[in-house]
Design a protein around this nucleic acid. Structure first.
Lengths: 241, 241
DNA sequence: GCTCGACGTATTTTCGAAAATTTGCTCTTG
DNA sequence: CAAGAGCAAATTTTCGAAAATACGTCGAGC
């Protein structure tokens, strides 16, 4: 689920062919999932042991992650997991809305039949997984990753035809950033408390998009803002805001 | 002019304290200025000799530059300067407009007296340099860098109070990307042909901004689009678009 | 004449140790 | 008792060489 889609590094992506690439993917996954908590220092020796790598590929991966705002560093004091804060979450959310709104508008303008088919397919695949999980009752980690993957695909499909490599890449980056605060929340177990009907929201967004209605943009923005609100409410912050 | 403003890496920026940082700055400058042409492969051995460094800091710098779209790489085939194309320029321009329009709107909403003063000061400093250059008649490289620096500062000042670290960082990144095609054009010598009154455009943008008029956003977008058009027209492209 | 494989070279990627710098501690001094 | 100098240990950063991989050339086979 992690380093897959939306990375323009290796032509048609795939398995990490380089140790640096693998370090990047594993580190990113560990940060997103919360294995390394926000603010925690990332000591090179520890990482070297954990992943069985040498310094060079690790530093390269950390450098990359820093550019993506998952890691921060100070000159000679090493790296640490980028901190989370209310304002960071809000900034990420609003930026994501800005990017994806524009991308969605353009997609609706350019989108052809394949584009529509892609959206419908992704939506269906997402719902299958949701159903499967609802029936099973339990939440395996593997299921969760499958969910995330399909959720991501759905949102990618919406904006796929915006015809801007930059917007697509930014959207992917922001997806990962927001994953960082969505995922720990799932694990945290406030799952039952969720009165939210995400499937309905997704369907509404899809319908409006296929209709080429500007409502789609509004619904998408609401979707993201609601998510952010739920997350912010479910975390007790060290120092307010 | 290069690695200075807008980099959140070392608290209050400053001199490169690390070789990796210095490699990053020098490489970036060489790419932006056109020392390394678009598409040109960046051989590590050559870079090692040129900068007198070892592989590790070089690779780190290249990794960073790749995240900023100045460099591209393929798994085991090394790095090269990211290619330029009409569509890349257009994408960069339109993305920049999207980002800075939003940032400008927010700045106009939040901006206080200090913000206004910063804009006026930056505008004045920019004009001083323009005047100095007009009088001198010649274009030293150093003057050009001073110009770029002040130009950058002016555009930063406009959006400085948008209250979004992400938007500011994206704007800075896109500034550098567009620098890449603006600068070689200056050197190229089509300078005399420029019928454009950039100073007037800047003044109009500033005035509208201080008035908190939505015209500011339109003027800014026009400003960037016009720049892109001029550049695109002045380059003969290998394969059309 | 063309394709394909083997081989030597060029280049990238990774490693482990050396150098440089920070951090924490102790001991002095005022 | 606070402030600071001086060390030792921990950590990051850099290096140069070793390993892995891609590239180009040449020759054999069809």
């Amino acid at each position: 689920m992690a380093g897959a889609a939306g990375d323009r590094r290796n032509a048609s992506e795939g398995e990490p062919v380089t140790l640096g690439e693998s370090a990047y993917q594993r580190l990113r996954a560990d940060i997103v999932v919360g294995t390394f908590k926000a603010g925690e220092p990332l000591r090179l020796e520890a990482l070297r042991q954990r992943y069985g790598l040498s310094f060079s590929p690790l530093r390269e991966a950390l450098m990359r992650l820093q550019s993506e705002r998952l890691v921060s560093s100070t000159a000679l004091r090493g790296f640490s997991v980028a901190p989370l804060s209310r304002s960071e979450i809000e900034d990420a959310t609003e930026t994501r809305i800005l990017i994806e709104s524009e991308a969605l508008r353009r997609s609706m303008r350019n989108g052809d039949d394949d584009w529509e088919a892609g959206i419908v397919a992704a939506f269906h695949a997402l719902n299958l997984q949701v159903e499967r999980q609802r029936v099973a009752g339990t939440v395996e980690a593997a299921d969760l990753f499958a969910m995330e993957e399909r959720h991501h695909h759905f949102h990618q499909a919406l904006i796929a035809h915006c015809n801007s490599p930059r917007l697509l890449e930014l959207a992917d980056q922001l997806y990962v950033e927001t994953q960082r605060y969505r995922l720990p929340n799932y694990f945290g177990g406030t799952l039952g408390k969720r009165r939210r009907d995400a499937a309905a929201e997704h369907r509404a967004i899809m319908d409006a998009t296929l209709r080429r209605s500007d409502d789609a943009v509004r619904l998408l923005a609401d979707h993201y803002r609601k998510t952010a609100e739920i997350i912010e409410a479910s975390i007790e912050w060290p120092t307010p805001k």
